[in-house]
């Protein structure tokens, strides 16, 4: 399923602390997160409930909340944390090299 290919998503400073941005690659969309502790994570860009961009949602601690219906996911694991979401979010490995954020898809 995963080709294991590393893709450059953005610069470290493109994402504010405790925030999320949208990253589109080919015909796919992803969400790239930066936590307050300085960790970076990546997941599918759309909520698993309805097709809304998680990048418009609010990051609080290690949780992203969908902007539409307030479903929540754990950023690090993708685990669904609050209704209406019940399907986990797919996450992707992230690495930082020379102030650039790479995700493996």
């Amino acid at each position: 399923m995963s080709s294991g290919q590393w893709i450059e998503a953005c610069e470290v400073d493109d994402i504010e602390v405790e925030d999320v941005i949208r990253f589109d690659h080919e015909d796919r969309t992803f969400a790239i997160y930066r936590t307050e502790k300085g960790d970076f994570f990546a997941s599918d860009g759309y909520c698993t409930h309805e097709k809304f961009h998680l990048s418009n949602g609010l990051v609080m601690g290690n949780v992203i909340e969908c902007p539409k219906h307030n479903g929540r996911f754990d950023i690090a694991t993708g685990q669904a944390k609050r209704a209406p979401v019940c399907v986990d979010l797919k996450t992707y490995p992230v690495k930082i090299e020379a102030d650039k954020v790479y995700i493996q898809i």
Partner: peptide, 11 residues
Amino acid sequence: PSGGIAKEFRL
């Protein structure tokens, strides 16, 4: 527009 106010609104 859909999504635009979401973060600020939640805060």
